Computed example of a mutant assay.
Amino acid sequence: ESDPELSGDAAGEDMFGEDDYGEEEEEEDPGVDRMQELSEKYDQLLELNERALQHNVALQRRVIQRRAQDKAYDAPDKQSEGKVTEHKYQNILQSVHTVRLQLRLQQVKAARMSEELKNQLETKRQKAIECRDSFQEFKRQVARHAEYARTGKKISEKIIQEIEEFEMDKDAEVEEVRGSNISLKNRLAKKEQELRKKDELAENLHVIDFEQLKIENQTLNERIEERNEELHKLRKKTVTTVQIVTHMREKVQFVQQDYQSLKAELSQLDADLAGQRDLVANTKHDRDQHRADSTKLRQQTSIMNSDHLAKDFASRTDHIKQLKEDINQFKKRHKQMTQFVKGHGGTI
């Protein structure tokens, strides 16, 4: 294990180195952003210079065309219009001269500004490189003197080199991201300016849009009223339909009750019919049995083959009926006579 005093000194050196690195980064960031802005301004000035050159060429072409047109006119026309064209030509030449002077001034300013920016960029770059190299050397020395807490071994040069390469890659990525951030900010500013122009152009169209929206709103209100009327009709139809459905449900319940009662009555009638059918079947069976017995008896007595016996049987039955009637008459007369005797207080 390492000495605690040495480890404490190393920790103090690490803390001091980190603070210095943070200060260097804070000083380096504004310089890099400033250089990016100045380079973009330089590009804008170059674009302005190119536009001025194009405008100058266009003016020269117009002058040449005008002079060619003047030559095509007749002599008196040339004399009468010579003063006017010459005056215009002088004005154009003067404007071209002023534009050229402005262009030269802008070029001089741009060149001076570019030189100043280049000088500032070089100084800042040299300072940043020196600070970076000194800081890397400081970190390298601290890493070389550092030791592992458990083993007490020093960090190898290979690991230190890998860490330095990793930091350099990350610094390059940070610079690239900063440049892309600045370009995106500029694009955002341009887009915002374009949106402002579009808003200014759209202000004149607000009145037309408002009138159109009023017309659309009126048509939509009419449609809403029509839909409300249709909805009211549908609600009425729904109410009547619900009433009809409730009435039909009640009627169905009543019909079901009647059906159940009729079904019970039908089952009772079916049971009675089955009993009557059984009774009829038994009666028919008894009748057939009696017929068979009667036929047997008639065959045994041979009454069917004797007319005399049949006549005698018929006469006897008639005589028996006559005797029964006489007996009944005698009984009635006896009863009357007994009542008469009892009514007069006598005895038989």
Rank of each mutant, 00 (worst) to 15 (best):
I129T: 15
Q102A: 06
Q90Y: 03
K118I: 01
F138S: 09
L103K: 13
D133I: 11
K127Y: 08
L105V: 05
L105K: 13
L103H: 03
N91A: 03
E116H: 06
A128L: 10
R112S: 02
I92Y: 04
I129H: 11
T123K: 15
Q120C: 01
R132A: 12
A110D: 01
K124N: 10
H97L: 15
Q102T: 06
F135W: 04
R100S: 05
E130V: 09
Q94A: 05
S134P: 00
L101G: 01
I129L: 14
K109Y: 11
D133V: 11
I129W: 12
Q136H: 11
A128C: 05
F135C: 05
L121S: 15
L93M: 11
Q120A: 06
K124W: 08
E122W: 09
F138H: 15
F135A: 14
D133H: 07
K118C: 02
Q106I: 03
V108G: 02
A111N: 08
V108Y: 07
A110L: 02
K109D: 09
Q102S: 10
A110S: 10
Q102V: 03
K109R: 08
S114P: 00
Q107R: 12
Q120R: 07
S95E: 13
E115R: 10
D133E: 15
Q90E: 15
Q107A: 01
A128Q: 08
V108S: 12
M113H: 02
L93E: 13
R125Q: 13
C131R: 14
Q94G: 12
T98D: 15
Q90V: 05
L105F: 04
R104C: 04
E115C: 02
Q136W: 04
V96P: 00
A111D: 08
Q126G: 11
Q126R: 13
Q126P: 00
R125I: 09
E130Q: 15
I92G: 01
T123Q: 15
I129M: 13
F138L: 15
C131N: 12
Q106H: 05
M113R: 03
R132F: 12
K124M: 13
R125G: 13
S95M: 12
S134L: 08
S95K: 13
N119A: 02
Q126N: 11
V108A: 07
E116R: 11
M113P: 00
Y89P: 00
L121K: 14
V99I: 02
A128Y: 01
A110Q: 05
A128G: 06
F138Q: 14
R132E: 03
L105H: 06
A110V: 04
Q126K: 13
S95T: 03
M113V: 03
A111M: 05
E115Q: 11
Q136P: 00
L93R: 09
S95P: 01
R100G: 02
E115W: 04
H97K: 15
L105I: 02
N91Y: 06
H97F: 10
F135K: 10
I92D: 04
N119Y: 07
Q107L: 10
D133K: 11
R125S: 12
T98F: 12
Q102L: 13
R132Y: 07
C131Y: 06
V99Y: 06
A111S: 06
Y89T: 11
R125C: 07
Q107C: 01
E122C: 05
L105S: 14
T123P: 00
K109Q: 06
H97E: 12
R100L: 07
Q107I: 03
A110H: 05
Q106Y: 00
V96R: 09
L93H: 07
R112M: 01
A128P: 00
L103Q: 13
